[in-house]
Write a protein that binds this DNA or RNA. Structure first.
Length: 307
DNA sequence: ACTATTTCCTGGATGC
DNA sequence: TGCATCCAGGAAATAG
């Protein structure tokens, strides 16, 4: 289940392999769940756009795009697009209307936003590679490769945004300062575990890293946010930074089927101290790790080490 | 304004 | 062995 470290790893891998590439055509599957924008909007924004950057925002992968073909000296501000067969063809552009006002030299900016959900994967491969089951999108690149979105469970989402840019909620856990971090949770009655998972507050933390950071901070997942002491906040802030940074350094956690952009597994699952260890001895005190359900999520903790 | 619960999905694991 | 059931969980929707 890709969370911040996994998405960061994937985004870095993709940045290395597809930055500068041009999306020539787009095929989108028939299933509607994966699409947050309409198929027409997505195809029309992506086609003939150059990928200038790939980065992570929370759990989202953002592809920054320069719209319009580099070689099309457009005389009327409208790029020629006579795509054909198979691809969802471009019709009227809505996404970048504001930026496309005049046929100036500067290319219009747009973004392709991918959320991997639980089981989403982005693979870069040769066109000959067999199309995996549950493939929902195929982008043909000018480098003669394809960028494919595969997602069996269909919790992933694809969308586009125009020149206004993608507005992610919450703050980045690795960028926020300690005071602001504590301020996010002030006065909340909700269990700290739920608060850490709330993407409107903090973006990018999922079930694994919430549990692991709470263990390192010595705080039980059910503790109400408002009851957490100053010292515990300090420890939680540091633990979260530590856990996320270590996980990124190890390429994320491969539980279930996560692999990075090159199809390789991460190694942070070997460092998990509580997640997925129900009944196993705590690595600090040997008390069996407990699992409870909070907000519908499995939550793992040591009843002795965490207060 | 918050908080809690339900819903969406499929593959793999488990149970009988 | 086969079939049914359960479980995983991010985030949007719904309910309180």
């Amino acid at each position: 289940m890709p969370e911040l470290p996994e998405v960061e790893t994937i985004a870095r891998g993709l940045a290395r392999s597809v930055t500068g590439d041009v999306i020539e055509s787009v095929w989108l599957g028939k299933k509607k769940e994966p699409l947050k924008s309409t198929a027409t909007e997505i195809a029309s924004v992506l086609e003939q756009s150059r990928i200038t950057e790939v980065r992570r925002m929370g759990k989202h992968i953002v592809f920054d795009l320069d719209r319009g073909t580099p070689m099309a000296h457009s005389s009327n501000g409208r790029t020629s697009k006579t795509r054909g067969k198979g691809s969802v063809s471009s019709v009227a552009l809505r996404a970048d209307r504001s930026a496309a006002g005049g046929s100036t030299a500067a290319p219009a900016k747009a973004q392709w936003i991918v959320h991997l959900g639980m089981t989403g994967r982005l693979q870069v491969c040769d066109p000959e590679t067999a199309i995996a089951k549950h493939t929902h999108a195929i982008l043909t690149l000018s480098s003669k490769r394809e960028l494919r979105f595969v997602d069996p469970r269909r919790f992933g989402r694809l969308s586009v945004s125009g020149s206004a840019g993608f507005a992610a909620t919450g703050v980045e856990p690795l960028e926020v300062d300690p005071d602001r971090f504590v301020e996010l949770f002030r006065g909340r009655k909700t269990p700290i575990k739920s608060a850490l998972l709330n993407q409107r507050l903090l973006r990018g933390v999922g079930n694994i890293y919430a549990d692991e950071s709470l263990f390192r901070a010595g705080i039980r997942p059910r503790r109400r946010a408002q009851s957490i002491t100053h010292e515990q906040w300090r420890r939680l802030y540091l633990s979260l930074q530590e856990v996320l940074n270590e996980a990124i350094a190890l390429g994320g956690s491969s539980v279930s089927d996560y692999v990075n952009a090159d199809g390789e597994e991460g190694f942070f699952q070997l460092q998990h101290r509580v997640y997925g260890r129900e009944g196993e001895p705590c690595l600090v005190c040997e008390t069996p790790i407990r699992r409870v359900v909070i907000a519908g999520r499995s939550s793992h903790y040591c009843p002795k080490c965490q207060k």
